[in-house]
Design a protein around this nucleic acid. Structure first.
Lengths: 132, 132
DNA sequence: CATGACGGTATCCTTTTTGACACTATGTGC
DNA sequence: GCACATAGTGTCAAAAAGGATACCGTCATG
């Protein structure tokens, strides 16, 4: 996404929608947030929950989430490094959004990109009613 | 976003969240959808509602939304071209998501990236150089 | 005739994002 | 000594996304 990293959001209505989305875009952020809703996780725990994400990507996404104040990173100064990630209050407040997203996804997955196969090919360019 | 254009979404839980987000990412898609929630709009109407979007971008985003079955494009074979865009049933079903996004955005806009400054600084309201 | 509205296309170019891969440091277990 | 786990970092390169600009054809208006 354009990702201006929230320089300024004083557009018209709809702007806040864009703003909210800007925070959870990125190929893995939403998924990470979603998993963190179940509780604190360590780096490699998240990684194992999301097959396909690389170390570098996960690090990046977590860093951005942290920058945006959605996720809290807690480092334990131990010898086998231990880092815990959890949602901040702000992150938790996004719960409803994530759930709405998941509900919609669950309900509609499996037919994206082929809604036209539904019934007919109504690609008619019909009705030239009024002439402007 | 990677945007594999929904090849397959059979990852683990959280996957549907990613799937849903993949459909409304893109710098303007969510905003477009949001505006279409108020009713059908013509190309240039949308354009005027979203200052900052270029023709090419708007066309792209609308095309992708159409491909994904979220938006319906209706062309009137008239001489001054007339094209109307509206939400499909699938698009309408995403209403709650968009609203959740907007609510969250409205409630939290203006403090992204600086949640640590918790106290003080209401200076994020100052009018930037732009003059209409 | 020139201009503007309409709804786009076509090009070109730059910025961002993502992915692959290698490498670090420390400690434990074998 | 060797491999493994932890949580990363660094570099390079490819692929997407986004932006700027110019152009198309038609009609109506001035």
């Amino acid at each position: 996404m354009g990702k201006v990293r929230h320089s300024r959001f004083d557009c018209t209505p709809g702007c806040s929608v864009e703003a909210a989305i800007a925070l959870i875009d990125g190929k893995w952020k939403s998924v990470v947030m979603f998993h963190l809703m179940d509780g604190t996780l360590r780096f490699n725990e998240i990684r194992r929950k999301i097959p396909g994400v690389t170390q570098r990507m996960l690090t990046n996404q977590l860093r951005e989430l942290e920058e945006d104040g959605l996720v809290v990173r807690k480092v334990y100064a131990q010898v086998p490094p231990k880092v815990e990630y959890s949602l901040s209050a702000l992150g938790v407040s996004m719960g409803p959004v994530l759930l709405a997203l998941r509900n919609w996804g669950d309900a509609n997955i499996g037919r994206f990109g082929k809604p036209h196969v539904a019934t007919s090919t109504a690609d008619e360019v019909e009705t030239p009613p009024e002439v402007a």
